[in-house]
Amino acid sequence: MQEKHSMGMAAKRRIANTFAYIMLGIISIVWILPFVFLVFQSFRVESTGVVGYVFPHKWGLANYVFLFSAECNFLQWYFNTFIIALFVCVLQTAMQFMMSYTLSRFRFKLRKPLMNIMLVLGMFPGFLTMIVLYQVLKTVGLTGDNAVPGLIIVYVASSGMGYYVSKGFLDTLPKSLDEAATVDGATKLQIFFKVILPLCKPILIYTILTSFMGPWGDFIFAACIALGSQTGMNVAAGLNSWLQPANISANFTHFCAGGVIVAIPVMVLFMFLQKYYVEGVTGGAVKG
């Protein structure tokens, strides 16, 4: 016992740290590998289906060339998604911020009921509404080929319900700022724009980032609203259609290449704004 003790803290720690490094190495490999495989597959040109090996027998850019050729709608999908993401990130951020700002900074009679109602509404599965929304949008003519504006409306309209994270952030800004501004003679509008909004940069960037990323990943609403149209789909729905049993053998490598092209801009954006994302996620969870 004494012997072991004299072996020293340093040695003990070294063993523990070596073990930790090995663990972290394994974890990193497990988390990275699928993406590496995906990239490899996107360069495979000898066949287009699912195969059981990692390294292509023949490397080439044929899959990428296919994506940008006229015979495929990928560019259209990409463009659709980009437009949707652009509108959604602006409008959704605005809606969410209006909601969370109001709930955080004002005390009015209907505040608690409103929050409770939204809590209850949030407990209903979102798909329930889709059946109705599809029919409504169809009557207005915003489905199929015109799915893009329809999707924007669907994404944006109810986004006030996702106010939690920004409200958590706003709650941490001291109330005396508002009060000081009130005494200084600012109207509520001026407080909003001149005092609070400039302080909300981190959370605004977080909201913009998440709402911009949302449309790239959502395929279920997109597939439903764009039902039956090749040009109305977004990237996710389009790529997903390539993996349906009927198409997979002809399109698996195309899917991989498309995945890479979709992932790159989102990833670049994400890496730049990582700090804000981490802050938002952490803050959101702690505040519940």
Binding site: P174, S176, L177, E179, A180, A181, T182, V183, D184, G185, A186, V195, P198, L199
Partner: peptide, 20 residues
């Protein structure tokens, strides 16, 4: 009357300076 119409100035405990 609104605070701004009362012709008052106020200093707060935590200063309430606008950080930006």
């Amino acid at each position: 009357l609104q605070p701004k119409d009362r012709h008052i100035s106020m200093v707060f405990q935590n200063y309430a300076l606008y950080p930006h």
